[in-house]
Design a protein around this nucleic acid. Structure first.
Lengths: 138, 138
DNA sequence: CCCATTTGGTTAATGTGTGAACCAGAAGCT
DNA sequence: AGCTTCTGGTTCACACATTAACCAAATGGG
């Protein structure tokens, strides 16, 4: 628990202080920048992030106000929305990503042996699998 | 990351649905119930939880409104506050604790081998230590 | 085709976390 | 004593997450 809280608090703080963005912002931009043309249907993004749809809607609204993403109506589905990364958002994630990766190395990966790292991955997979079956059981 | 998010989301949801309390509530009550006479100075509680003082103040306000804790002025230090667990809070944590422990077993401990569990503890300690030194360096 | 249901998305209410400003009482220094 | 600095707490403004309610466009039977 201490590791969990400490890790996310540290990562969150680094992103905030150095890039003026939250972990949530980072994930949104990361997914968008990896998508073809930097654009995704809103609900696709929601599935990738596993977020409540209201959360996504509100968060995208704030990011749009800051000029990090833009929203357009979808042509194929009249009720749908397409969200696209802006040049400003693209620049931001390009700066943030390497620092973020370095931080994760610095606080986690660099201090574990190969065995520990491998074990951590298998543990993570096991837990994720267990959580998935619980979730599937409704 | 998936393990981290999944675990805390699951635990949080179980507490909320079954006991009507958040993980934050649980931690506050847990610390108070372990303290002598179920009472602690506000700042001591803050140090145990590693919370911002404004967070603690606001959260205690809400818990007081729900009758889970009470606050009194401190005799020794005129500006200080003492926070105490109420009978209602005490009952709640007594019901919640075993369920909480069972949930943690169910989703984490029971599915790991002894080796994995031991390794996870080692990893947690290493990371916590690393975080502590970073924090200490200001 | 018509009507019920589902799906994509927004909005409002409430609970929760963070940083800054603020205040009163304590401690320390001269 | 008198002055500064530190400490314990609250409050405000804002960012953020969840739930429920809502709406319009799609879908799927009859």
């Amino acid at each position: 628990m201490k590791m969990q809280d400490g890790l996310s608090e540290f990562i969150e703080r680094q992103l905030r202080n150095r890039c003026g963005m939250s972990g949530a912002d980072y994930q949104v931009l990361a997914h968008l920048s990896e998508a073809p043309e930097g654009r995704l249907r809103s609900f696709e993004l929601g599935q990738l992030l596993r977020w409540e749809k209201s959360r996504l809607s509100q968060h995208l609204g704030r990011m749009q106000n800051r000029g990090l993403v833009s929203r357009e109506r979808c042509l194929a589905d009249q009720r749908g929305a397409v969200v696209a990364i802006t040049p400003r958002g693209s620049d931001l994630i390009k700066v943030a990503a390497p620092q973020h990766v370095a931080d994760v190395r610095d606080v986690l990966i660099d201090h574990l042996t190969a065995t520990e790292m491998a074990m951590l991955v298998t543990i993570g997979d096991k837990v994720a699998e267990r959580l998935a079956t619980l979730e599937h059981k409704h």
